[in-house]
């Protein structure tokens, strides 16, 4: 197992992400390549979960786009992630917020966390 961690470490590129957790609102700057052109797409939403550890960690980000819920999964150490901005912190009582998918009205809100 140690050897696998060693290999992952060797391939991990240093990323300066802010500390965030499930319930926080983040803005992911994702590089998109179209032909030879490269542009950056922003995707802002609530983090539903952080999954796996090390090089294979992923985050699931949910947002409501034109009234339709959209979820995207980003590999955290993907080279296509330019940066991640922490927009707001949320007060939640669990690490995986799948209840948000079915929640409506006030239950679908995440309260702001202070301090």
């Amino acid at each position: 197992m140690d050897a696998i961690k060693f290999v992952e470490q060797e391939f991990t590129q240093e990323k300066n992400f802010p500390a965030f957790r499930a319930g926080d609102t983040v803005n992911v700057h994702y590089k998109i390549r179209e032909g030879n052109k490269e542009r950056i797409q922003q995707y802002q939403g609530i983090v539903l979960q952080r999954r796996n550890a090390g090089l294979n960690e992923t985050i699931t980000v949910r947002k409501i786009s034109n009234g339709i819920g959209v979820e995207r999964i980003f590999p955290l150490y993907s080279l296509n992630i330019d940066k991640i901005e922490l927009v707001g912190r949320g007060k939640v009582r669990r690490a995986r917020l799948f209840y948000l998918r079915a929640a409506k009205g006030k239950k679908a809100k995440v309260k702001e966390r202070r301090g």
Partner: peptide, 19 residues
Amino acid sequence: KLGMTSIFDANGKQIPCTV
């Protein structure tokens, strides 16, 4: 065989690999 993981290549593609 020690196990599997995945790495990112130069193009940013995720590749499954075995250690």
